[in-house]
Structure formats: structure tokens, C-alpha cells
Amino acid sequence: MGLDKIWVFAEAQGDSVASISLEILAKAREVADTVEVFMAGHGDDHAEELGDHGATAVYVTGDLDGSLQGSAVATAVAAGIEAGDFDLPDAFILGTTQDGRDVAGRLSVKLDAPVITNVVDLEFDGDTLVGTEPVFGGSTNVKTRFTSDKVGIFLVRPKSFEAESTGGAEADVEDLDVPDLGAAGEAKITDSFAEETEGPRLDEAAIVVSGGRGMGEKDAFSMIEDLAKILGAAPGATRAIVDSGWVPYSYQVGQTGKVVKPTVYIASGISGATQHLVGMKGSKNIIAINKDSEAPIFAVADLGIIGDVHKVMPKLIEALNNR
């Protein structure tokens, strides 16, 4: 049993293919015979990596002259379908990213096809693809399938699947015809800025040390940075302290930030709002330090310390420094 063909929207991350895209490719290859990729920009740099992860072809838009990906990719895909350039796939899978959501949203209108969002697993029920989505902060899972004959569009959350190299041959690069986008194409990127952080990437680190409102004040966040440095960990943060301007958004773990699944997650002064739990409760081991014994974070902690972060953290940092 398997599907004939799945399309995947892939994104670049620096010079490589984004990990979310490689994760989706692994699942797509598992459930379908043929996996083809759609991507903004030029495909030559990525054809080898995409092929190695199971894609046979990559359709690319070419230079977008600064236009955001959403309208360009959706318009090119819909136009190609309309022109009969493609055999329709059984499903189109995208990542829950800024641009993934833009492409999915615009394409769903163009094809009048619904979207199943926040998918963390895909499986078969008979010969239809079924998505699993956590609701109510992850306490409940619902399984959803499409009932129409439209292309099923799925938005998959990061870290739902494991990327896997298959040793496949370099993917064929095919140019897409991008029609005039009209007003929708007039949102243009004029400049890009990276918020550099030291140490490992938050969504790839083996250890993550995160701070929340319970740290008390912005200056106390230096304890998170210090402990992270000693452990070779990535520092993270809750939405509450990102919103308060203590640290940039690139630190944020949670529903509206990054999903992390490190070997060890240390939550310091974090109460455990569902918004945050959704982004970290897949961690293999969770250590929580919080002075409120009723804090929801303790429900997911493997080791919970009921105590004052301002007392526990300095001693922890000193003890590790002395080793």
C-alpha cells in the first residue's frame, strides 16, 4: 500500500535545505512512490541534497526579484496544474514555517482545497492519508482526513519526523513558469538581517537551557547564557520574556517559536504555559526549576526542583565550573 506521488514545499536555510523540509521528505518517501519538490529560487545548489533525501525532481521558480515566496510559489504551482503540466499528486506537504504557511494559504484559495494544519504525524487509513494534530496544548490528539477530491494540503510541524539520507541520485531540476503575480507579488524584501547567537542552533542543540518570567528581570537571563555556555547548550526563552524584550524572537521556544527535542531541556523560572509546553515537551529529559510547586511545568519534568532559580542556578553554574 502506498500513494503514487507527493509534492513537498522545500525551503533553504543558508546554503542547505532546511531541516523541516528534509524531515517532510523522509515521511513523504515512506508513504509515496514518487516525491517531487517545489522551491523558490534556484535548484542547482540543492538538487544533490534533495535527491539524497528521496526527491526525484525539484521544480524551481528562479529569481523572484525580492518577492515573498508565498504568492510566487502558489501561483506557479496553480498555473502549472491549470496548464496540465503536472500529474496531480495525492498530497502536498509543507512545513509550519512563515513561508510554508503563506504558500499553503494562497494555494488553498487557488485550488479551493482545504488545509490540515499543525500535523505531527501522517498515517494511512485504508488508502487515504490521515493527519494527527495536537489540540488544547497537546493534551488531546485529533486525527483528520480530507473528504474532497482536491489535492490534500498538509502543514507539518517541525521535528515531527526524522530526516533520513537515502543515497538517492541528484534530483532533476525543472524550471517553473511564474506568471505575473499582480498586486499580490508586490510585497518585496529589501534587506535581510540575521540575529546571530553563539553556540549551537536552538533547534539542533543536544541541550537547551531556557528561561522564563520567573527569572525576575532581564539581567538574570545572563545565568541562562552562562549555564548554556558551560554545557555547550543553546539558550532558549518563553514567549513572555521575548514579548518583554529581554531576548530576541530567535530564542523563543513554543507554539509560536521553535520546536525543540533535545536530549536535555532545562526550564528555569518557566511555569509551563501550554504555548511553551507544545514546543518542548518532546524533549527526552526535562529538568525544571520553579518556586511554585503547582506550576504545570512539573507535570512534564523528569527532575523537578521546587526552589528559587536565583539560589539554585548560581550554585549549579559554580558546581559545573568546578568540575
Binding site: P114, I116, D125, V130, P134, G138, S139, T140, N141, V142, K143, T144, R145, F146, T147, S148, K150, K281, I286, I289, S293, F298, A299, V300, A301, D302, L303, G304, I305, I306, G307, D308, K311, V312
Partner: peptide, 25 residues
């Protein structure tokens, strides 16, 4: 044009070890 075919409680993490800090946590 979607059908929910299943609603189930998500697997719960096993309860961990919770201790109160007495200065040596």
C-alpha cells in the same frame, strides 16, 4: 471538507522526581 476520525488523549509523560530545594538541589 474534512472528517475527524479520532479524538484521543495524548500520551502522558511518566511522573518524574520532584524535590524541594534545601540548598543542595
Amino acid at each position: 471538507r474534512q472528517d475527524i476520525i479520532d479524538i484521543a488523549a495524548a500520551p502522558v509523560r511518566e511522573a518524574g522526581e520532584i524535590i524541594e530545594d534545601e540548598g543542595d538541589a
